[in-house]
Design a protein around this nucleic acid. Structure first.
Lengths: 116, 116
DNA sequence: GTAGCATGCTATGAAATCCATAGCATTGGA
DNA sequence: TCCAATGCTATGGATTTCATAGCATGCTAC
């Protein structure tokens, strides 16, 4: 239905469609990583529950991201609503280290003040 | 100058500004991860060289992303042009596992055909 | 059987973002 | 003085995202 970036096809950052650039193109859409992350943490849930967990996402965008993530096989629908696939959980695991680094980042942004 | 998502301030996905959601908000902009990744792989380089390495990015967007990444302290300017900071390199390292997973993804997308 | 209520969306019009392309200002040689 | 390289900015149009409203379906309670 929708047109998602695919490895092997031209994507942002790689005309030849390198897998990592295709992945960045997909996950780099607004709310992309946020939705995957939230769903993985929360576990299987309904559309509305996920929307609520994301705090401020609009249904139109949530719907768009969910469709894309399903097409990419990172998300599927199960008996308890939306859930991450095995591949989706792998991505989540891969992103986990970012959590720690983001805290380091928070500290650094706090200490040194801005002037850009 | 510009207004980047900051841990501690309201961001997409977290009114309280959880560091990971702030990071997703920042890196989840178009070309965000792609620019950081490319710069980390390529090493210090000029604006034009980076633009060329990104294949299709427009100067306006590259400039916007670079400003944001500098404000976030993931990128800085050195004697040989733009380069990633220690923190930026950490993010890059954190993203590395995604490369392997993206290849798995490519295989899976290739094998099972679509019908969504 | 009909009145709610939850769920999963779609519709809409405005605002923000991104795009390709052109081109300008500065620097450093030749 | 020319010229090429560099680091952008300007522009107008195409996409994307936004907040908000609301519709269709399937319960369950009465």
């Amino acid at each position: 239905m929708v047109n998602i970036p695919r490895p092997g096809a031209p994507v942002r950052g790689s005309q030849s469609g390198s897998p990592i650039m295709a992945l960045f193109d997909l996950l780099g859409r607004r709310w992309g990583m946020g939705v995957l992350w939230t769903l993985a943490e929360k576990g299987p849930c309904t559309f509305r529950a996920l929307q609520s967990a994301c705090e401020t996402i609009s249904p139109a965008v949530l719907n768009a991201r969910l469709k894309e993530l399903q097409q990419a096989r990172f998300v599927e629908r199960g008996p308890n609503g939306y859930q991450v696939t095995v591949l989706g959980r792998q991505i989540y695991s891969d992103l986990l280290p970012l959590s720690k680094t983001s805290k380091r980042w928070a500290l650094e942004m706090e200490s040194k003040d801005v002037r850009d």
